[in-house]
Design a protein around this nucleic acid. Structure first.
Lengths: 222, 222
DNA sequence: AAGGGTTTTGACCTTCTGGTCAATAATTTA
DNA sequence: TAAATTATTGACCAGAAGGTCAAAACCCTT
């Protein structure tokens, strides 16, 4: 991924120009995220994004030199947002509790920010043209560390013997599913939208199945 | 010449026109499926589809009146293909065995026909503009029957008490994930493609976790 | 062999695409 | 205040989009 649009973060220079720039950029990024997520890269036109952001199209191209560039900026914002709330698991942690927390976090993210998850999904489905490098250089090392942690838990007899990679994939899939397939899920359950109680119910059921499969019980103190 | 033979020969009138039509249509549908899956609805142009199918663009529009129509035809072919291989579960079945078989089938479908799964995914992510009706009228009744079966198993004490809907979602997600996120999974595992042995390994791990979460063991006779 | 219907195809149409640019307006700096 | 920067925006461009059409090629019937 090439360089992002620079975001001037020095709080000292809070003149009107900086304010306008940040406001416009945020508006544009929000609009782009919405439209890229719902219509895909090609389905979201610069015109539609500009209209949604309530700025002229030429203004969008003034801040983000090209559509590619804008798309990259949206992806980067999503990834940095995801990394912020990331919960880590490590060898000495209690498996049941830390896995439960990780699942809870992922479910909440999926239900509360489904757009971001969906945009990520469409990017990967297309073959990850923009994210392949990121995954190789950032996600893979992280993934391998977590696999090692899970393997250590298995070796210590803390959880049932199971392929750690597939365990991680199962956690990712079963949580992300509620974002990506939201439309189908809501139709099947005859609902209009997720409620706060759904997040808890989904977390509980998902954690129950996965932890159960690992020979663990749901942690009592939540 | 051979009029008497061809008229009543078989359910398919096998004259040259019919053959050409079926061959062309199949070529076009194949090409459209490939391109819709990899580039999305808007990303796949009629021109590209025609080139991939090795027919002139006007020919594509002769058989399928519009892009919308072609897209619908592709979706319908996928759904009918999926319904063909569908394994049903019913109350009197053995939970472990029938769930294992269902998971196995889903994993194989995901690994061997990832395109179809991905196209379905992008359609649902976009809000299922074409499939919402189908899901409401076909999938939902089927879904509720299966939920009832699972609930019956729970009531009979055959499986652990868990929300049946979420159980079904977990099976769908954890299998479909290997198609939709194939790119990411292959990068993380440093592989080029799935092998036959992967299908077995994925099935085993997935089934082990889900069945374990239900208080069941992997069936020994597979 | 002739006629009627279907299939094939290149040329063409309109609309929309991402992107450019020069003129103008606003703000900061000197 | 004047000069220099930076931001805003309508007009515009070449190319690609989905779709139309009529002439030609093809096949089947009679």
């Amino acid at each position: 991924m090439s360089e992002a649009i620079e975001v001037n973060s020095s709080p000292a220079t809070l003149n009107k120009k900086e304010l306008a720039r940040q406001k416009s950029q945020a508006q544009i990024l929000d609009a782009a995220e919405t439209l890229f997520a719902s219509h895909g890269y090609d389905g979201a036109s610069m015109n539609a994004i500009a209209t949604e952001a309530k700025v002229p199209k030429a203004n969008v191209l003034y801040y983000f030199k090209s559509k590619d560039n804008l798309y990259e900026a949206v992806l980067e914002r999503i990834l940095s947002n995801w990394n912020l709330g990331l919960i880590d698991i490590s060898v000495d942690d209690d498996p049941a509790l830390s896995l439960y927390r990780y699942i809870h976090l992922k479910v909440r993210l999926a239900c509360e920010q489904p757009q971001q998850s969906r945009l990520f999904a469409t990017e990967v489905i297309r073959g990850a043209p923009y994210l392949a490098d990121y995954i190789r250089q950032n996600t893979r090392p992280w993934f391998r560390k977590k696999v090692a942690v899970l393997q250590a838990w298995i070796d210590a007899g803390k959880i049932t013997q199971v392929d750690p990679s597939h365990l991680l994939f199962m956690i990712w899939s079963s949580t992300q599913y509620y974002a990506d397939y939201q439309t189908e899920i809501l139709i099947l359950q005859n609902k209009l939208e997720y409620e706060e109680s759904d997040i808890e119910a989904i977390t509980r059921s998902t954690a129950q199945l996965i932890l159960g499969g690992l020979g663990l019980k749901l942690p009592e103190s939540i």
